[in-house]
Deep mutational scan, measured.
Amino acid sequence: NITNLCPFDEVFNATRFASVYAWNRKRISNCVADYSVLYNLAPFFTFKCYGVSPTKLNDLCFTNVYADSFVIRGDEVRQIAPGQTGNIADYNYKLPDDFTGCVIAWNSNKLDSKVSGNYNYLYRLFRKSNLKPFERDISTEIYQAGNKPCNGVAGFNCYFPLRSYSFRPTYGVGHQPYRVVVLSFELLHAPATVCGPKKST
């Protein structure tokens, strides 16, 4: 009989979030998941669920729940959905087409922007091929755009693959930082360890 609440607040209220290319994953298990708490945590810009209804979450049980978190800019949030393409979905964080879970995003301009520009958040701009779903690539190998090998040196047709967002508070919403948490629900042929409040007794 599990009584402890799932530590969603640790994920959502973390002081620092990860850069999207090096997104963070927390496995959540053996706890009571009260998803209604999430609705009250922040004024969400996005709370979209796929393959599951957000209002039914509190009635369900899962084997595992994974919470992935990272920062992107406002106009990239739409890429965090099944079947999307674009720089983020292709080279940084890719959801599977049959994704079961929820994408939660909110504006973090007050936390993640600086007047002089916050350069701490990076994204991958160049990659030889698209990522597979939930693949994480943290390599910093020089990207070869031409025929000549780069031998690890940046220059003509040889690019450092990561680029930094420079978040400034005066930017338009599309270029402001957004914190994203992706909850993916895993149903294996194994005992369910993460249940809503109704199912945990």
Rank of each mutant, 00 (worst) to 15 (best):
I2V: 14
I2N: 14
T3D: 11
P7A: 12
F8T: 05
F8C: 04
D9R: 11
D9S: 13
V11R: 04
V11S: 05
N13R: 10
N13E: 10
A14L: 06
F17L: 06
A22I: 06
A22P: 00
N24I: 07
N30G: 10
D34V: 07
Y35G: 09
Y35I: 13
S36Q: 11
V37Y: 13
N40S: 14
A42M: 13
A42H: 14
P43G: 11
K48D: 08
Y50E: 01
V52Q: 06
S53W: 08
P54H: 13
P54A: 14
L57F: 08
L57G: 09
D59T: 13
D59P: 08
C61N: 11
N64R: 12
Y66K: 09
A67C: 09
S69H: 05
S69R: 06
F70Y: 04
V71R: 02
V71D: 00
R78I: 08
Q79F: 05
Q84K: 12
D90E: 08
Y91G: 05
Y91I: 06
N92G: 04
N92Y: 01
L95G: 01
L95M: 09
D97V: 11
V103S: 01
V103A: 02
I104T: 08
W106Y: 08
L111Y: 11
S113C: 03
S116T: 13
Y121M: 10
Y123I: 11
Y123Q: 10
Y123P: 00
R127Q: 03
K128T: 12
K128S: 13
L131C: 03
K132R: 13
K132Q: 13
F134L: 08
I138R: 08
T140V: 10
E141N: 13
A145F: 03
G152K: 10
F156Y: 07
N157Y: 02
Y159N: 01
Y159T: 00
Y159S: 00
P161Y: 04
S164N: 09
Y165C: 00
F167T: 00
F167P: 00
P169R: 05
P169N: 04
G172A: 00
G172I: 00
Y178K: 03
V182T: 05
P191D: 14
A192Y: 15
A192H: 14
C195H: 07
G196D: 11
K199D: 12
K199P: 12
